[in-house]
Design a protein around this nucleic acid. Structure first.
Lengths: 338, 338
DNA sequence: CGCTCCCAGGAAAGCGCTTGCCTGGCGCGA
DNA sequence: TCGCGCCAGGCAAGCGCTTTCCTGGGAGCG
């Protein structure tokens, strides 16, 4: 690897001059020397060692993002928003997947801290685990104490800046819609029990139903993996309870798609026999059959806001932005069968 | 930010000793000192400055990935494969989105080079642009000259290690299937013209059709954005040609989904009136209605192989692995209408 | 009791870069 | 002609860490 010294030698100047030319320093340099340095850079295919640069001039221009799983459409959308803002502001993004493993999440935070990133964005639900939360908060606090910025998306973990989707409200929207359609036996396909997002959505749903005296007994809630297959499996279990629910609420769209697939396989008509609702309004929701009634979350916008929070110098106390949820009615829901 | 020196001071030892304790160096250190250092680390919440470490002991443990767009399911799957292997081997992954912009791609390669990453993986089609290709190759060559490893997925750009999906073969599979079903008027929803992947798939398709004397005139090929909406738009155009095609081949599944949506909106029955085929076999392909006939590419496997290539010390000449394509018959295709 | 050997721990160099400070040479004015 | 000021360019320190090399002291042996 060519170093600055190599360039300087080849151009017949001092490293200081070479550095100034390369960085476009304000200090003037004679055209001829500049020319020579530039040529040397090109000849040697010199690329500055970012580590050395960052050591000498600690300026943080990289932003780290820790995500549950970018392959998940939910995070794909959020990440798109994060990227957009980061790019606009000339920041490089480092994306890390924790795969919903709190330990790995912690490790990544540590790692990003070591990389001296300008900001850390944590995207994705928090966990019901006090010990973990404490640990995470300590690490984040230590990082912020050194001037790093932290923003979280969709988790209560952290006391600092946050962007929160209205999960509970979304749950309520679903509950009201269900009541409006006359459903009183509701089955829930929930995601992993440990995620706070699940609890929030469930709480909202339960609250809305309770207003009309409809209960949500435990055996009608099935916890499953947050993906298509998990949704299918949980739905199968719900169908086998008796009396079977007339509506199935999946707490994200991937699981809802799984539910739809299973119902089709079993010859159950949607929405005539059973209504199905999702959550998130992922792009696929409009392309499955029947199209999926769901709660829209402004995913890209969440990413945009979070990155803005992370990049803008903090103006005052922790800022929490709550983004609205909105019911999107499509063809997978209908009146409860008589 | 606490530094090693701070830790050493607090523990009453030299930085050298502190460093040895922290890195678990083989050099023995008295238990008491070790103890003191560890406590100081904890008290100070010390995290080593990765840049300084990397400067002092240039060891490359990070792998950089430049991808067209992680939000695209195709790349989401590939990335999953990359991640898996990287994680197994204890490597951190830095994911960068070029958003199909060759210039940004170049910038990211440069940037990763500066970050002294152990390897760079380029995922995604190359471009029909000789100048760009030359530039890219130069940069990659310079990087490899310094001991970096490069692997590419699905592009002919580079002369080094590569994982190639059988794009042309996939095109042929589609062509043969079409002929088998009696289609002779075939419309193609192609992606961006500049991508080599598109050309490859098209070439295979054309070759297969030509074997039975079926032509693919230019006006039956529509270039569009590589996403759902692009697919819908291109399909609309194809429908308006006359005579309209009896089969529509979308060169990726996202566009195929768009095609399906548009056909439904126009009241065209699939597959009775028009057959639709996709490419890639993304997860959604089995969940749309009708389920999508497509060509399966082993996306995750491609990521796995590429990361293996990138991480394993090169054994001999450039290794190119071609992964097979496979036709997946589903409900969106049927015999050509009479 | 004195010597050597060995080992724990510290001093210091150096990784590649930036930048404050200094120097030497030039141009200008008196 | 001499002296001053100014500015381009170089010197060197220092960013935080690792690691080689060295030192001093204790243990073991004669």
């Amino acid at each position: 690897m060519a170093t600055l010294a190599d360039v300087a030698r080849r151009a017949g100047v001092s490293p200081a001059t070479a550095s100034r030319v390369i960085n476009g320093s304000s200090k003037p340099v004679a055209d001829e020397l500049r020319e020579r340095v530039l040529r040397a850079v090109a000849d040697l295919r010199y690329v500055p060692n970012a580590h050395a640069q960052l050591l000498a001039r600690p300026q943080r221009s990289v932003v780290g993002v820790v995500v549950h799983d970018v392959s998940d459409p939910y995070f794909a959308e959020v990440t798109r928003g994060l990227q957009r803002v980061a790019t606009e502001r000339g920041r490089l993004l480092i994306i890390c997947n924790s795969y919903r493993d709190p330990v790995r999440e912690l490790e990544y935070v540590e790692l990003l801290r070591g990389q001296q990133v300008a900001a850390i964005v944590l995207a994705g639900s928090g966990y019901h685990d006090a010990a973990f939360t404490t640990l995470l908060n300590e690490k984040l606090a230590a990082y912020e104490a050194t001037g790093g910025r932290v923003a979280v998306i969709g988790r209560h973990d952290h006391f600092g800046d946050a962007v929160m989707p209205a999960n509970a409200t979304g749950g309520e929207l679903i509950g009201r819609e269900l009541l409006r359609l006359g459903h009183r036996r509701v089955g829930v396909v929930a995601g992993p029990r440990v995620l706070t997002t699940i609890t929030d959505r469930l709480t909202g749903l339960r609250r809305a139903l309770a207003e009309q005296g409809v209960e949500l007994p435990d055996q009608r809630i099935r916890y499953a993996d947050f993906d298509r297959d998990g949704g299918a499996r949980a739905t199968a279990e719900l169908l086998d309870t008796s009396p079977a629910p007339t509506a199935i609420v999946a707490l994200n769209d991937s699981m809802a798609v799984g539910a739809l697939a299973l119902l089709r396989a079993r010859g159950v008509r949607v929405p005539e026999d059973v209504s199905v609702l999702g959550f998130d309004d992922m792009p696929i929701a409009a392309d499955v059959t029947p199209t999926l009634t769901t709660v829209r979350l402004p995913l890209v916008e969440m990413g945009v806001r979070a990155m803005a929070l992370a990049l803008d110098p903090t103006s005052g106390s922790p800022r929490v932005e709550t983004l609205p949820a909105e019911l999107v009615r499509r063809d997978s829901t209908g009146p409860a069968p008589a």
